[in-house]
Each structure stands twice: as structure tokens, then as C-alpha cells.
Computed example of a mutant assay.
Amino acid sequence: MTKRITMINTLDPDIPLEIQVIPYGYHETPKGAFLCDEESAALVIEAFNSRQNDMVIDYEHQTMSGAEAPAAGWIKELIYKGSEGIWARVEWTARAVQYLGNREYRYVSPVFVVRVSDAKVVNLLNVALTNQPNIDGMVPIVNKGVGDTKNEEARKMEKVSAVLGLPEAATEREILKAVEDLKGQTQVIANNDVLAALGLKEGSSQSEVVGTIMAMKQADTSITGLIGRVKELEGKLNAKEADELVAMAMKEGKLTPAQKDWAKDYAVRDAEGFKVFAAKALPVIVTGEIAGDTTKPTGIDETQKMVNKMLGISEATYNKYAGAKEA
């Protein structure tokens, strides 16, 4: 049964409650290579959901060493986000929030079990806060600046909602109604907390408050629309790049025609991972054959068997295409 937890970070709204714990795709680390795909995610999440206890996030893997190991947080749920890999919903401790807020810690480091036959991740054992993760390129926990889609205006709206006693996700209509309810008390809004959250001076009128909220809403909507258009453009560029990568891999004999759709999907989701695969994969289709030579391989060496197994290619399929050529 999936554990579904709804949490609000009351300690620090800038510290995320969802963090990446295992990145998607093929990765090489100082401790060995691993692969995280849909099958990996399903196995990892199934193993996590079979637990009765929450999984701890500690500091520098102290839990694994047997030393005193205070918790930095507790993983309540694991989520698969496709090309972004496996993420965790976290309940942080106050001490960890302070570390993260001060940028004293920025990354996490997972400990997991890898299946020997194909290097796929099958179980998550531990997650730790660290500043020297073995996996390069993971999403940092705290990273203000480029890529932060939550603009300052949206943050102000949340603060106004809190001051008015409304939920953080209150709608524009709900906020304006709460402001209108204050109008009957006096022509001047006397709640200094609301004015401070909006960046207005003490004694500002109700009209100034309403106008400021409307302007903030418009700014938030415009940014959201721009983000959507950027993501659409990124998708088109990713698809074009994927087509080029797959075409090159097929030209080099690294893919069979039957693998084209699989390869396109992989390249769209993780272009860098596909480049690593294409660079390391051995040819499965012989190119540049002597004219008239239709002899097919009579056997497969151990290296090729291992490659075939990782790619999901049966021996019959390999033998069928390895010596094939165009008429």
C-alpha cells in the first residue's frame, strides 16, 4: 500500500519537502556503475512500501557505521518522476532545516543495492546529508536562483494568506474576500502584518491592498505561462536531439531496427545516459561487410552475451541481425 503524506514545511518554506534520492539513467561513480529505470523504480518503491518504519536521513551515513546517528529527517514516501528519477517526501528535523537554510548542507547521498546481472538499482537502504556525494549531477536540496520557478510575488501571496488565516494555497478570490471583510472595520487597513507581507506602508488603504494583490496575481500568471512555453520548446529540442542520437547509433551498428522505438524513448528521457550507452555498447549489426558474404556468426562470446542481456536482446534476435545486410 502506498504511503501518502501531506506536509507543510512550517520550519522554513524555502526548504523543499521533496528531494531527489536516485537519479534516472546510467551513472558511473567511484564505487561502481548503476542504472535506474522504470523497473528499478518499481522494485525500489515496492521494497520501501513493505517497510513498517520510516526510512531515516542521517548525516554522512553515520547510521551505516554504527556510530551515534541523529536523524536529519524521515522519508515518508518514495515517488518515481520519470526522467528525474526517484524522489522522496521528507519530514525534516529542526536541526537539519537550520543546516540547509544556512547552506551548510546541499546534497544527499543514497546507499542502495545493485543487481549484479545488469547493474540496476533494486533497493534503497539509506540516505544521508553530505557535501561530497559520489553521484555527480544530482539535484541539490537547496539551490536558489536559476530554475527556481516560485517567484517572490508568489511567496508574498502565501504570506498574506497566512496572516489572513487562510490556507497557503488560498485562491485569489478567497484572499480578496478576506480583505473585503476587513473593510467594515475601518476605511484604512489596520493589520500591519498584511501590509508588511505586501510591502506596503502602514496606513495604506483597502484599495491599495486589493490593487497590489491583483498585480501580484498577474505577475505570477505571466511567469507561469512563460515557464510552460519554455518547457514546450525544450521538449521539441529534446525530441530532435533524440532522433539524431538514435540515427547515429543505428549508423554505427549499435542498434537493431527492432530497438529503434526503445532507443528514441530512452534518448528523449535521458540524452546524456543514451550517449554513454551508445559510446560503450558493442556493435550488434556488422557494418561494411564484403559484398556477397552472407555468413552469420556461429557463436556469441561472453562479452557479447553480457551486452545482449543488458539490452534485453535474445540470442535468436542477435543471430538474426548480427550478420544481416541490406539487399
Score class of each variant (00 low, 15 high):
K260Y: 02
K260Q: 13
D261C: 03
D261M: 09
D261Q: 14
W262M: 14
W262V: 12
W262D: 15
A263S: 05
K264E: 13
K264N: 11
K264C: 05
D265G: 05
D265L: 06
D265Y: 00
Y266M: 08
Y266Q: 09
Y266E: 12
Y266F: 15
A267P: 10
A267M: 06
V268Q: 09
V268K: 13
V268P: 01
V268L: 08
R269N: 13
R269I: 02
R269S: 14
R269D: 11
D270G: 07
D270S: 12
D270H: 08
D270K: 08
D270C: 11
D270V: 06
E272Y: 02
E272H: 01
E272P: 00
E272M: 07
E272W: 00
E272F: 00
E272V: 09
F274Q: 07
F274V: 10
F274K: 03
K275M: 07
K275D: 07
V276F: 06
V276H: 08
F277A: 07
F277N: 02
F277T: 05
A278E: 06
A278G: 09
A278D: 07
A278Y: 03
A279S: 15
A279F: 02
A279P: 04
A279Q: 12
A279E: 13
A279I: 01
K280F: 04
K280D: 11
K280S: 10
K280E: 15
A281L: 00
A281T: 03
A281G: 02
A281R: 02
A281M: 04
A281D: 01
L282C: 01
L282G: 03
L282K: 05
L282D: 04
L282P: 05
P283S: 02
P283F: 03
P283V: 01
P283Q: 05
P283K: 01
P283N: 03
V284T: 03
V284Q: 03
V284C: 04
V284K: 01
I285Y: 02
I285S: 03
V286E: 13
V286D: 11
V286Y: 04
T287C: 06
T287Q: 15
T287K: 15
T287H: 07
G288S: 12
G288Q: 13
G288Y: 03
G288C: 09
E289I: 13
E289D: 11
E289C: 10
I290R: 15
I290H: 09
I290T: 15
A291G: 12
A291N: 14
A291Y: 06
G292I: 08
G292F: 05
G292L: 07
G292P: 08
G292M: 10
G292N: 08
T294L: 14
T294W: 11
T294Q: 11
T295S: 13
T295F: 03
T295R: 08
T295W: 00
T295D: 10
T295Y: 01
T295I: 10
T295E: 12
T295P: 00
K296Q: 14
K296T: 14
K296P: 15
P297R: 08
P297W: 04
P297L: 11
P297F: 07
P297Q: 10
T298A: 15
T298N: 13
T298F: 09
T298Q: 14
T298L: 14
G299H: 01
G299L: 00
G299D: 13
G299Q: 12
G299V: 08
G299M: 09
I300P: 04
I300F: 01
I300T: 12
D301V: 06
D301A: 09
D301Y: 05
D301L: 07
D301E: 07
D301F: 07
E302V: 11
E302N: 11
T303G: 06
